[in-house]
């Protein structure tokens, strides 16, 4: 049972108030009629399934009925941030890796 911070309500709520809506940041191609069958198929059917950081869309169905995005670690289930549609995540797999390597080099420097 996740504890999810709704960025619209500005509160933590229990998971049962929400519905997961799959991967976030899937943009519908701007000009569908001039999108190739393959690209349209990718948009419709292909999703990431990462082990680790994932950006997901959630819906606060029993609360404010607003959509928002969640950055969640699919291994630990830790939620690192939630943010509104149209916003970009501040925590990404890349930013995490950069942070980890920065820490490693700091430790190296300390030695």
């Amino acid at each position: 049972m996740l504890h999810i911070y709704c960025p619209h309500c500005d509160e933590y709520r229990e998971e049962e108030e929400f519905r997961p809506k799959g991967e976030a940041h899937i943009a519908r191609p701007a000009d569908p009629e001039n999108t190739s069958d393959e690209d349209w198929g990718n948009y419709l059917f292909f999703r990431k399934n990462p082990r680790g950081l994932h950006h997901e869309q959630w819906f606060h169905s029993a609360g404010c009925r607003k959509f928002f995005n969640v950055t969640r670690d699919t291994v630990s289930y830790e939620i690192l941030e939630t943010y509104k549609p149209g916003q970009q995540p501040t925590v990404t797999a890349e930013s995490r890796q950069a942070q980890a390597s920065a820490q490693a080099s700091n430790q190296g420097a300390a030695k």
Binding site: R19, F59, F67, P85, G86
Partner: peptide, 13 residues
């Protein structure tokens, strides 16, 4: 209704 909200909120605000 959820479907309509999703399109309105995330694609066509």
């Amino acid at each position: 209704l959820d479907w309509m909200e999703m399109w309105h909120q995330t694609e066509w605000p």
